[in-house]
């Protein structure tokens, strides 16, 4: 009797241990593969999307800081009546563009969208973003390994978080 009842907790513990080791293994795998796959440009930047302010998000996404450039043209309305749908776009005259990102400074999570460009893809993108309230909007362009930015203030009359 004592042997069987005594066995069960141990066995469960061992199984739990094995399961958590397996989980940890799975959890770690994408991170370990991160740097290698970053070159292939196809991994979803989970951490960057979790950052609350724009500087942390830029650092998490690119690992460096951006300098303002008049070669990055950010187009957004001065006043957005509906913060749930704000049309914004970026064009740039910079060469060798590999990525363009949008950050909404006052949103709960700053990074809104990040686009990767292949050779031969025109360095311009238009999309629609949510803005919680009046905010600074930042566009980042990665060109030839360097980061360039442009910013614009957008006044939001009805926030995009009320559903």
């Amino acid at each position: 009797m004592t042997t069987t009842t005594g066995l069960h907790p141990t066995r469960r513990l061992i199984l739990q241990g094995a399961a958590s080791v397996a989980l940890i293994g799975l959890g770690n795998l994408p991170f370990a593969a991160g740097p290698a796959r970053a070159a292939a440009n196809d991994k979803y930047p989970e951490e960057a999307f979790k950052q609350k302010n724009e500087a942390d998000a830029i650092k998490a996404l690119y690992g460096k800081t951006a300098e303002p450039s008049d070669k990055v043209k950010l187009d957004a309305p001065e006043i957005a009546e509906n913060g749930g749908v704000v049309p914004v776009s970026v064009t740039t005259t910079l060469d060798k563009v590999t990525s363009i990102s949008f950050l909404v400074a006052e949103n709960p999570f700053a990074l809104a969208a990040s686009y990767k460009f292949a050779d031969g893809t025109v360095p311009a993108v238009a999309n629609r973003l949510k803005m919680a309230k009046s905010t600074k909007l930042v566009a980042i362009v990665e060109a030839d390994g360097k980061l360039y930015s442009a910013a614009k203030d957008v006044k939001v009359t009805v926030g995009g978080c009320g559903g």
């Binding site: 949103n107 999570f109 969208a113 990040s114 686009y115 629609r128 949510k130």
Partner: peptide, 9 residues
Amino acid sequence: VADWGTAVS
């Protein structure tokens, strides 16, 4: 390739 967060409409 587009990577999107929750702030896309």
